[in-house]
Write a protein that binds this DNA or RNA. Structure first.
Lengths: 257, 257
DNA sequence: TAAAATTGTACGGTATTACCGGAACGGGGG
DNA sequence: CCCCCGTTCCGGTAATACCGTACAATTTTA
């Protein structure tokens, strides 16, 4: 039972990787002391201390009287990167409309390094509390958003991603079979939107539409809500129609405005 | 006219600092090639390349066919750090109310490493486009939010911060004199809220109230809008009353809930 | 069209330094 | 008051970050 926290890939500058590992541990443990981090990474305390001091001076980490925590400076970089993305700027107001209309969560996801990144989420009046936050990363095939994107990507690219990241299950309904997944892509392309029936989180249903520009996949948007509200005509017709309409608006604004 | 991009402080692990410098350059240039970054940092191309490859493998940077950009993974760390902060969770819904009531921008700021960090902002119907984004950092004394916080911090602590970061002006109205600043703290404490009259951005006025828990400064919230709307009875009475009321609600929820 | 320059990338040597073990420091609890 | 735990400091050494050089690919110039 090893708590595989270290990134075991080989990188040209190893010290940077170690520093980054330290940050990851801090996040995983919700803040920790030098010794705690050292044990987690199986490194000498003094080494970890060097990295923590470095990170603190770079203002990436906060030293709160002995316990170190990840700082908000990451937000600065991330917030900037996001704001620069056109798809975010265009989709944001539309997603707010979508959340208002449906009363549920609405989300924007993009693909990066073969992973699904929640770039933005906003809540309607009835939205339940969710585990996701801005920047949260998931395996693409566990979400309707990810499946909507993959369905419109090159097959070769998709195979690469699946090889690289695998297909781990997060609930007993997560798709873990590659053939099954590709079969669903077919449906998604015909239907125009993707569905997640409790495949990432138990009790949550999600309907997602891709954002396309010719052959390019810009991202995907979705509405998600609890199972008991996502059924019948609302699930079959109303929500999909709303999601597709907004997706179309975003696509148009992306190419024109 | 040097473009002082390198962080010139001495850190235990220098390689980490270099990697971080590279990221900063990428952000400053909105994405750049190896050569461009190397020139900016006055380093050999090969060295920069090593760092970029490392950062790419850590998924912190995206290689878009030769030009490198900062990735959204920073958002993951930042988003997580933020979500963990109680003041954010408590303040978020209240700020949305505040923005709705006033129709203007409303903001949440916390202090970190002596700097002011915009932790959250939300826009009312009439809100003008602003240069800030989540995670954006400013010098404390340039904003009403920062001044509201400093007015309730230990004087020693405030002097430290001013020494460390200086008091650069961003408009011709920015306070650059230490005595003047401390005199204003007096007013702020009496009045209960702080005012920014075009001190950070020309044309923008801001009213901010601190979030306190006994002697501890948790952060500050504000409403900001264009000069022509922030005047008369609305500026003197209405907005301050709303800001103070919401600040009080947040303070109560912080200690009790 | 050809040549020349620029760019991203790869590789190996070497001086630097990241890493480590050990010791000192400080604070909280018994 | 003393003990113990966690943090910090320090100096030696093996590892490696950095650099010069080279190559392929693309773009620019002649």
């Amino acid at each position: 039972m090893e708590s595989e926290m270290k990134t075991d890939i080989d990188v040209p500058v190893k010290a940077t990787r170690v520093s980054f590992d330290v940050v990851e541990v801090l996040r995983a443990l919700d803040g920790a002391g030098v010794t705690e981090v050292a044990e987690e990474l199986d490194l000498p305390r003094s080494t970890v201390h060097d990295h923590l001091r470095t990170l603190e001076q770079l203002e990436l980490v906060v030293n709160d009287d002995g316990t170190y925590k990840t700082g908000t400076r990451f937000l600065e970089f991330g917030g900037y990167a996001r704001q620069r993305m056109k798809v975010f700027e265009v989709a944001k107001p539309e997603l707010q409309n979508l959340a208002e209309q449906t009363g549920e969560h609405s989300n924007l996801m993009v693909e990066e390094h073969g992973r699904g990144v929640f770039l933005y989420k906003t809540e309607g009046q009835n939205a339940v509390k969710l585990d996701t936050y801005n920047g949260y990363r998931v395996h693409l095939q566990t979400t309707a958003l990810g499946k909507a994107m993959m369905a419109h990507m090159d097959e070769e690219n998709v195979r690469d991603i699946l090889d690289r990241h695998g297909m781990p299950a997060t609930t007993d309904r997560t798709i873990t079979d590659e053939d099954e997944l590709f079969a669903e892509f077919e449906e998604i392309r015909e239907r125009g939107y993707a569905i997640d029936r409790e495949e990432r989180v138990r009790g949550m249903i999600c309907i997602a539409a891709p954002l396309l520009n010719d052959d390019e996949v810009l991202g995907a948007i979705s509405v998600s809500g609890p199972k008991n509200r996502m059924q019948g005509e609302r699930f079959e017709e109303e929500i999909p129609r709303q999601v597709l309409r907004i997706a179309n608006v975003i696509e148009v604004n992306m190419t024109h405005a």
